[in-house]
Each structure stands twice: as C-alpha cells, then as structure tokens.
Design a protein around this nucleic acid. Structure first.
Lengths: 199, 199
DNA sequence: ACCTGAACACCGTTCAAGT
DNA sequence: ACCTGAACACCGTTCAAGT
C-alpha cells in the first residue's frame, strides 16, 4: 500500500528517471536518430508534452543522460582498478581497459558523451571531471611507484587519456589494421604505457 | 560568349560545387544545426528539391563535404611538413601542428569530419586514409633517421595520431588546464614526441 | 539532365486547459 | 505539481510536371 495517492506513473522524480531510462533504451537500440522526445514520451506512456515537465528541452535530457553514463563509466573504471590489485601500473592498465570496453559496448552511448562534452552543460563537465581526476591520481601513483617517468602527472595523464580516447575513435571509425591487432584500442594503449615505462 | 546555352546557374558540376560551398559556409557560421538542405537551396538560389539532383540525400552532401575537408587537411599537413625542411622529426611535429590548427580553426568542420569518419561513405574513408598514410610514412622516416624508437611504424603512428586527435578533443571540450599549457593540443603532442624520442 | 512547386510525414516546442 | 490535446514552425524527402 502506498501512503499518498497511488499512481502507476509519476511522483518524486520517478517519471524523470523513467524518461531517462527510455531514452537510454532508444539510444542503444537505434542510435542517436532514434532518440526523439516524442518516442520517449510514447514509450514511457506519457503525452508528448510530459517530458517538458522534467527537462527544459531535449538538450537537457541528453545532458542528464550523458552525465548518468559518465557516472557509470567512473564506477566501472574504479571497479576495474580495484580488482587489478595493488600495483599502480596494472591499475592504470585495467582502467584504460574498462574505459575501452565501456566505449565499444555501445558506440552510440560513447558518442553521446563525446557530443555533450563539447557542450555547455555543467553536470556533464562535473561527471567528466571525476573520470579525468581518476586518471590523474592513478598516473601519479605510477610515478610515485617508479613505474612511469616523472614530470607533471596532469600532462602524462592527458597523454594517456588522449591516446585512449583517440584509439577508441580510431577503432570505431574502422581505420585500424585488424590483422596487426591495432583494431584493439586497449592493446594500443598498453603499448603506449609500455613505451612510456621503458623510457 | 558561352558555347552552349548560357545560364547563370548550373551545368557541369557547377551547382554541385556551389551547393557544397554554401553548406560549408552555413556549417562554419552556424554549426551543424544550421546546415539544412532547405537553407542550402535557398542560399544557393535554387529550389528545395534542386540539391537532390546532385546528392542522393543530405547524408551524401555531408559526406562529400567531409571528404573535401579531409583533402584540404591533407594538403595543409603536406605543406607544413614541406616547410619544416629535411629533418623528419621536425616534419612530423609540423604535421601535427597543422592538424591541430585545422581542427581548432573550425570545430564544426572538425566535428563533421569525425562524424562522417564513423559512417559508411567510401569517399570519406579514402580521404582519411591519405591523411593516415601520411602520418605512417613520416613516422617511418623518423625511425629510419633514428629520431624515434623502432617497432611497427603503423603502431607508433597510431599512437601519435590517436594522441593528436584525443588532445584536440580534450581542448575542444574545455577539459584541459589552460594555465599549464595543456590547453594547447600541439604542445601536448610535442611532449609525447619528446618522451618517445628520449625513450 | 536539371529545374520548380506542392505535398507528406516527422520533429521540437508552446499554448490552453484540466486535476 | 503534473498531466493531456491541439497547434505552430521547421525539416527531409518525394511526386508531378515543366524545359
């Protein structure tokens, strides 16, 4: 029994979350083009105007979705680093693997994040910042453990992150030589890390 | 005097090229959202249906535009490498600088290219291949000159290219620390090259 | 071969009105 | 506070018809 006015829909951010879930489903099933406010409303079982009660416009909904995805990415990176054990270098490697897996699991999802990252929405940038800082901390730990060369950890982390992101983009656009294993972004990043370690 | 039927518009791919030019103008002025087939037709002084006589649909026009941009990027990279002189390492650096400049000069243009690169259009992939191969050749020259460590030039080029692309993305999304100079992708790539050379 | 003008289906967004 | 239903402006695309 519910305490105040039973209703199959709405109340207390319930529909808001449902709308985001529906949008995520549409995105991962049919790509960016399938994410339509009308389709979101239909599948959520509400009217066309209803989404506007929870998001100021479509861009706001997409921003909220991207932020949610970034939160999940951060969790998965954190989990992967934890499972990798104590060695900082292995933790960094596991993080990049988790990042790559997250991206390849659903390119549409990854593209949405990329799209929103160059937008102005605050929640997106805050969520991205968490991921970025995790990279910097782990790279710093590698340097302290003597597993990566010194210098500004921000700079080294930027290089590692840029390469990871770039390698994913290369893989998603099919511009990598499969037979050489360059099609696997995780492997490419690992090669970079190995080269940096030796240097 | 024209030889066969004077006309201020059309004939022999003239309008096709004009449509592409108009689309480029709209893109660089107002971003992706401003590129509308209707707006293209209007500004080119033709009807709404006219663009369909030259492109099967909007995606085809965007693909052609991306391919044209990639051609220009390749030319600018080639020019920059030439001006850098004989040293292969300097040529590689100049190429990455040209790449970064091209991207930052017009983010909308760069984003269109990125968008189309993960699409299926052949002309886009061929144009991208030229840029990619230029990177590989120059990296190979650096290795032969002993200015970069050995190993598969494809792999090393992929790392350099991925980092360049990733650094640009970082800069465009504002996730770089300006005060440390990490906001400049060219500088970040230079740091990577220096680290690889020393290694 | 290339063009115009009208039409269709679809989308984001807003308004007026209900509870 | 949250919802529905109708409407408006805009877009990609197609059709019928002209030269």
């Amino acid at each position: 029994m519910m305490t105040r006015g039973a209703s199959s829909t709405a109340r207390g951010g319930e529909t808001r979350s449902a709308l985001l879930g529906v949008a995520a489903g549409l995105l991962e099933e049919g790509g960016m083009g399938a994410v339509t406010l009308r389709a979101v409303g239909d599948r959520a079982g509400v009217s066309r105007q209803a989404p506007y009660n929870h998001f100021s416009d479509k861009a706001a909904l997409l921003g909220a979705l991207a932020a949610r995805y970034l939160g999940r990415l951060d969790e998965e990176m954190s989990g992967a680093a934890g499972e990798a054990g104590e060695d900082a270098f292995e933790a960094l490697g596991a993080m990049t693997v988790a990042y790559v897996r997250f991206a390849l699991e659903s390119p549409s999802r990854y593209r949405l994040i990329g799209r929103e990252m160059s937008g102005p929405r605050l929640e997106v940038h805050e969520a991205a910042r968490a991921v970025h800082e995790r990279f910097v901390r782990t790279v710093g730990a590698c340097q302290e453990a003597g597993e990566l060369p010194g210098g500004d950890p921000e700079e080294l982390a930027a290089i590692v992150f840029a390469t990871t992101h770039g390698a994913v983009e290369l893989a998603l656009s099919g511009h990598t030589e499969e037979e050489k294993g360059l099609g696997d972004p995780a492997r490419l990043v690992r090669r970079l890390l190995d080269r940096l370690r030796r240097g």
